[in-house]
Computed example of a mutant assay.
Amino acid sequence: MTKEQSNVNKPLASHEIIQIEQKIEWLEKIQVEYKDFIYLYPHSIETPLHRYLLKEVFDISYKWSPGQIGFLYLHTTGGVRTFHTRSDPSDFVQQFRETEHL
Rank of each mutant, 00 (worst) to 15 (best):
T99E: 13
N7Y: 10
Y52N: 01
Q5M: 12
S65F: 13
L40Q: 08
D88C: 07
F92L: 07
K3H: 03
G70S: 05
F71N: 06
T85C: 08
K35W: 05
T99M: 10
I45K: 01
E98H: 07
P11Q: 10
E56N: 13
K55M: 04
I30D: 12
E25M: 07
K55C: 03
D59V: 02
N7E: 14
E46M: 06
Q94R: 11
S14F: 07
S44N: 09
D88H: 09
T82E: 13
R81D: 12
Q94D: 13
S87D: 11
D59W: 04
K63N: 14
L49P: 00
D36L: 01
Q5V: 13
E46P: 00
F71T: 14
T99L: 09
H43D: 13
H75P: 01
F37E: 11
K29C: 07
Q68R: 15
Q5Y: 08
V57C: 09
K23M: 08
H101N: 14
S90A: 14
L102E: 06
K23N: 11
V8L: 15
D91S: 13
R81L: 05
G78I: 01
R51P: 00
G70D: 08
E16P: 02
L72H: 03
H15F: 06
P89D: 02
P42Y: 04
L12M: 10
Q31W: 03
Q5N: 10
T85V: 06
N7W: 12
W26K: 15
K29I: 15
I20V: 15
P66T: 06
K63P: 00
E28K: 14
E46R: 14
P42V: 12
G79W: 04
Q94Y: 10
I69C: 02
G67H: 10
L53T: 01
D36W: 04
P11W: 02
F96Y: 12
L27W: 14
V57N: 03
D88L: 08
T76F: 07
Y52H: 15
T99C: 14
N9V: 11
I30C: 00
K63H: 13
Y34N: 05
D36F: 02
V57T: 04
P66C: 02
E56H: 10
Q31E: 15
K29F: 00
H43I: 03
H15L: 03
A13W: 09
P89L: 06
S44R: 12
F71I: 15
T76M: 06
E100V: 11
T99I: 10
W64P: 02
R86D: 08
L72G: 04
